[in-house]
Amino acid sequence: MRSHQQSALMENTLHELLFHRQPPSPTKMVVYLPYHFVGMDQAMHAIKMLRKQKMRIRLLIHEEVFRYYDKKEIVERTEIDDWITIQVLENMKDLDFLFLPILSFSLVSNILALNDHDRFVRFLLQSLFSKRKVSALSIGMDPNHSVWKEDQLTHGTPYLKSKLKRELQLLQSVGIQMIEPDEIDCFFSKSDQKKKVITAKDIQQFLYKKEKELVVDQQTIVTPLAKDMLKQHQINLISE
């Protein structure tokens, strides 16, 4: 990591010292990073974006990731060097967020099969039952996402694509909230949690109306990707 960037581990250790005796403690998040053949760049960038939030962020990495990335590269790309083991995760009692920046097929399969022989999946299921917030980026399970096209992965059969879409819906039905990379900043920001957020998906639906302007109030956040889509389709954004 570049020298001017402060270590996440150092920041988190300071938080522990500063808030050991006096509340409130910072919001705590664990990011679980498995390996998947599509979306890893976006996953690591999403983790890096989380560094902007005033949270204690710790990273749990599946061992398969190290077949493709060394430790130094992961730290440089995520800016997180505070890594934990599954044993540490299992003993966390005050965790606020569990975040999955990439959804691999095997991970999704284990979650939907309620496979509690997988220790991480068991913890995730416990989190859902205890109302802990669990969220994920949908890229790895969304073959219609532009990333799949960029990687030339567009030739799956209609059945295969519909199966992935169905599994995404099932993940949402069990309580995992799906978000897009351009929602990271506002989704985890306490100051923005009560505000309405317009994302690229919302703009895609808005395009069907064939209107030339979108009117929002001062409390509405329009993500950068959504703004780009508005410009691309020559739709005026009006804030009242």
Rank of each mutant, 00 (worst) to 15 (best):
A136G: 06
K133A: 07
E73A: 10
H15R: 13
H145W: 02
H15V: 10
H15Y: 15
L103T: 03
P224H: 05
V147I: 07
Q218H: 11
K131Q: 15
K28F: 10
L89K: 04
E150L: 09
L59G: 00
K133S: 11
M178C: 13
R119E: 14
R122D: 01
E211P: 02
K194F: 15
V197R: 02
G140P: 01
G39M: 08
V222R: 07
M178N: 10
K201S: 12
Q87V: 12
K161E: 02
A46C: 08
S162N: 11
L171N: 02
Y159G: 07
V108R: 01
V222C: 04
S135T: 09
C186D: 08
F97W: 07
L170V: 12
Q234E: 13
L230T: 01
K28W: 06
L237V: 03
T199W: 05
L124K: 06
L114V: 13
S130I: 09
Y69Q: 06
L214K: 09
F99M: 03
Q42F: 13
K209L: 15
K194M: 15
L237N: 04
P158A: 12
K210Q: 15
K72D: 08
S127W: 00
M92F: 10
I184F: 04
E183M: 05
L59A: 00
S162A: 11
L225C: 00
Q177G: 09
N144D: 07
D217I: 11
Q87P: 04
S104R: 00
H15D: 14
K210V: 15
I84F: 05
F129H: 15
V216I: 12
K72T: 03
T199E: 01
Q5T: 12
F66Q: 07
L114R: 10
M44A: 03
L153M: 07
